[in-house]
Write a protein that binds this DNA or RNA. Structure first.
Lengths: 169, 169
DNA sequence: TTGGAGTGTCAACAACGCTGACTTAAAGTG
DNA sequence: CACTTTAAGTCAGCGTTGTTGACACTCCAA
């Protein structure tokens, strides 16, 4: 990362970003995301499930009782797409759909015991990789990692991300 | 995943990584990767192309004359999958496939003028986002970002990643 | 000349996005 | 109460992109 030789500090750091540096960043994202999903993918492959199932389990675990609509906006897919996934998860007894108490149109989603077990298994292998990566890179690197990722999100995605964080405090 | 409090420092930095921190990291990866691909995806949608086409164009651009086999190992897909993409790109005149001079079994891949133009268009919007993110996060954050991403790759992917970097020096 | 590597192609399938159209039920509103 | 809106579910169909398996062709090398 070459720095600006001279140049005015105006609150924001000035960076001369060459084509090559940005290209490397893009490739790093590509390869790293592959690594990031590789371990859960291996487990899911044997269950006729896919990444979409993992994501659903992950976010239901993280926000128990969430509604379908809320999950839709987090995942950013169509309800038809999500419904296909939820249907199989409910049929297989991993997710429970409870009719809303106040608003009976809503369905509140919860993991069953079996759902929790699979979620745990999936995210365990994923977290093992992240833990190793975090340790290798060190705490400052992790802070930077999170900072760049957050800056890379769409504003709406960033809002979702922060809301989830705060919701778990 | 709560960490052991205490523990020996053995050259590696010690980090207390809570379940929540790792969960946030995973979510950050998910949301950021969505942002990362959003802009090129919008352009590709209108061309009946997808991400796979973008990736092929990207890596052919970065390593002109690469063979199909080499591209396969970089992208980590089957030859049937890659072939489908390459066939359309060649048919549409974006990629040129030249029979190897020394080994005539090999096909060396190059972008045509039109291919270069589309690759430029796609990566321009992607790089614009990365540039903004990099500037917002600052140079130390970027260094950490790259460090963590690299640590997150599979060893083979990391090898590929570094080889590409060195190949362009 | 035979075997193997590199490449290309066909067929079939699965996961998971999408759109569009439609239903049911409940809630909100005039 | 009648009407509209909202939440959810469903059906049908399509596109991209990954997968296997099978097979053919070219060319190099033992």
């Amino acid at each position: 990362m070459t720095e600006a030789p001279g140049g005015q500090a105006s609150g924001e750091t000035l960076l001369y970003l060459t084509d090559e540096q940005l290209r490397q960043g893009a490739e790093a994202m590509f390869f790293a995301y592959r690594g990031f999903t590789a371990d859960p993918d291996r487990i899911l492959a044997g269950l006729s499930y896919g990444r979409a199932h993992h994501r659903a389990l992950h976010f239901i675990h993280g926000a128990p009782g969430t509604t379908v609509n809320n999950l839709l906006s987090i995942l950013g897919v169509t309800k038809q797409s999500l419904n296909r996934v939820l249907r199989t998860l409910i049929a297989d007894g991993l997710v429970e759909s409870r009719v809303g108490r106040d608003d009976k149109r809503e369905r509140h989603l919860h993991l069953t015991e079996a759902g929790r077990a699979l979620e745990q298994e999936l995210t365990d292998v994923q977290r093992a990789r992240m833990r190793t990566a975090y340790r290798q890179a060190g705490p400052e690197a992790v802070a930077g990692f999170r900072k760049v990722l957050e800056a890379m999100m769409d504003p709406e995605q960033r809002r979702q991300y922060k809301a989830l964080r705060e919701g778990r405090g």
